[in-house]
């Protein structure tokens, strides 16, 4: 456990795993059959990059093995506010998934209002008002001033049978 409590080691391990996976996929890339025996094909650069990345990740892993007590992850993350951060990340994923269902206005309003609350804002009416004003202002600007189409969402189409 102590061995993995090191920023450099974890970082280089992550990149090493990524590079090996990338290399494996690089070898599976198809080659243009019309290219003949051209020295440069779709695989050339990816394979070269993966090999270089593996080499440097191993170098970093070797160096980090000699720095035992430095850069501890457990010390670096002490006092981090994980709950609001992870909630915001989850909220952004939900926002991206619900965008086409609820449409720009409703999904954006819910995203903003919920994120204000996640970050500790307790004045529900004020935060609701700010979220609604911002979304409506942006919607008006984008659709009415700049003429940009914004998805009104499946819900809107289901309820009103319209396409805005």
């Amino acid at each position: 456990m102590h061995l993995l409590d090191n920023k450099d080691r974890i970082g280089s391990l992550l990149l090493l795993v990524f590079s090996f996976t990338y290399l494996q996929y690089a070898f599976e890339l198809p080659i243009d059959p019309t290219a003949g025996d051209e020295s440069f094909n779709a695989r050339t650069l990816p394979i070269g990059l993966a090999i270089a990345a593996i080499a440097f990740a191993l170098i970093e892993l070797f160096f980090s093995a000699r720095r035992v007590d430095e850069n501890r992850i457990s010390e670096a993350v002490q006092g981090f506010s994980w709950i609001p951060t992870l909630s915001l990340v989850l909220l952004m994923v939900v926002y991206s998934l619900l965008f086409s269902k609820l449409g720009f206005v409703l999904s954006s309003y819910l995203f903003l209002h919920a994120s204000f609350l996640i970050l500790g804002e307790r004045r529900i009416f004020l935060s609701g008002f700010i979220a609604a004003s911002l979304v409506v202002f942006l919607w008006l600007m984008l659709t009415r001033v700049f003429g940009i189409f914004l998805d009104s969402g499946d819900l809107y189409r289901f309820l009103f049978g319209l396409v805005s």
Binding site: D8, G11, S12, L15, F18, S19, Y22, Y25, L29, P30, I31, D32, A35, N41, A42, L45, P46, L49, A50, A52, A53, F56, A57, I59, E60, F63
Partner: peptide, 26 residues
């Protein structure tokens, strides 16, 4: 070494998509 690794990661991400010969990569 970390900066070199990150540059290589950026180069690897740049290979995603269609290459000039029309082959889909990653």
């Amino acid at each position: 070494v970390k900066a070199i690794l990150m540059t290589l990661l950026g180069l690897m991400l740049a290979t995603v998509g269609e290459d000039p010969s029309g082959i889909q990569r990653f």
